[in-house]
């Protein structure tokens, strides 16, 4: 019977008496679902190698995840609004690469313009915003599918980076660009402060401000959001630009941490970004999930990666095992949430 699929389950009976707070809403519980998983991973890590719990290792794990965390923050907000951005993984490379190419001499694979080095960071961030704005133009004005637009942009932007740099890695990095990825503030790397702060800002904005809640409304039902007076196109556009900005910032951190911009910087990251978001409870349908959940997703993946390294899994195998574990985590997240992740 083909008619079957179109009949959805009726809503479950809701509890009799309306309560005002007191009990924790189910959604809130799902938010915390990954906390036990994180604790479990910490215990496993500690058993495998005592080094795991050393503050140097923990700092290291966190710092390595900061760039991913920023991309996940961007992607989570975009997904909640019911859109997609695959091009983030190219923005993280192109934005710093273009900014550097404009400031470094042609001898170091620059474009020869040799703008003042102080402009590198503003240009980098601006490039991120511009990419987001251009995605928004194609998606909102020309009504193209976000998926296909940003997939195209992923390829175009990567190609641009290779074209601009001649496929070379950029090494001659001005100190101002290196700073954020290397600085240590109050004993903790600046990149951790930055990512942490931005997550807190994001959680507050999406949880406690009207304009942030509009993102959920748009992802849940765009027509209804529009009817409620939300300027849906404008909000989505802003979100896409913020996404590009965060990706460019992540690019800066990565450049500083690694001391160079590789031609393939960010290449292949988008799978991990989506995995972290989905494991963290963000729905690809839009309208569901929280940034706190997404952050937990990032931490879970970071811990798994670290544990695999400490456990001495050979470098040749680590990618396959990491990918497999992500798939298992997705299955577990599906089972514990009881909802299809379509």
């Amino acid at each position: 019977m083909t008619g079957t699929q179109t009949i959805a389950k009726p809503p479950a009976p809701t509890g009799g008496r309306p309560g005002l707070g007191g009990r924790i809403p189910l959604a809130r519980l799902r938010d915390l679902a990954l906390v036990p998983a994180i604790l479990l991973l910490v215990v496993v890590g500690a058993i495998i190698d005592p080094v795991f719990l050393s503050s140097a290792n923990i700092t290291n794990v966190l710092q390595q995840q900061t760039e991913l965390a920023l991309l996940v923050l961007a992607e989570a907000i975009i997904l909640i609004a019911g859109k997609f951005d695959l091009s983030l993984e190219s923005t993280i490379g192109l934005a710093p690469a273009l900014a550097l190419a404009l400031v470094i001499p042609a001898a170091s694979n620059g474009l020869g313009t040799e703008l003042p080095a102080g402009l590198a960071i503003p240009i980098c961030l601006l490039v991120g915003v511009a990419i987001g704005a251009f995605n928004g133009l194609l998606i909102l004005r020309f009504k193209l599918s976000a998926f296909i637009v940003t997939l195209g942009m992923l390829i175009v932007l990567r190609g641009l980076q290779i074209g601009i740099t001649g496929g070379q890695n950029l090494f001659d990095i001005p100190p101002s660009v290196l700073y954020l990825g290397n600085a240590v503030w109050f004993g903790v790397p600046a990149s951790i402060w930055i990512s942490g702060t931005l997550f807190v800002v994001g959680i507050a904005a999406l949880g406690f401000f009207r304009h942030g809640r509009a993102v959920y409304a748009i992802g849940g039902n765009t027509d209804a959001a529009r009817a409620a007076g939300i300027r849906t196109d404008r909000v989505v556009w802003i979100i896409l630009m913020v996404g590009g900005l965060l990706a460019a910032l992540a690019g800066l951190l990565m450049t500083g941490r690694l001391g160079s911009v590789a031609a393939a910087q960010g290449d292949g990251m988008i799978f991990t970004v989506f995995a972290a978001a989905v494991i963290g409870g963000i729905s690809l349908d839009g309208g569901k999930g929280t940034l706190f959940g997404a952050l937990c997703g990032v931490i879970v993946l970071g811990l798994i990666n670290n544990i695999l390294t400490l456990a001495g899994v050979s470098a040749q195998w680590i990618q396959a095992i990491y990918g497999a574990i992500i798939l298992i985590a997705l299955i577990l997240a599906r089972l514990t949430s009881g909802k299809a992740q379509d």
Binding site: R210, R213, Y216, A217, N221, A224, A225, G229, G287
Partner: peptide, 19 residues
């Protein structure tokens, strides 16, 4: 329907005027 199923009843009632 202009109800957003993923949001709570309270938020639907005060959509875009929560604060």
């Amino acid at each position: 329907s202009t109800i957003i199923p993923t949001l709570t009843v309270a938020e639907n009632l005060f959509l875009n005027r929560q604060a």
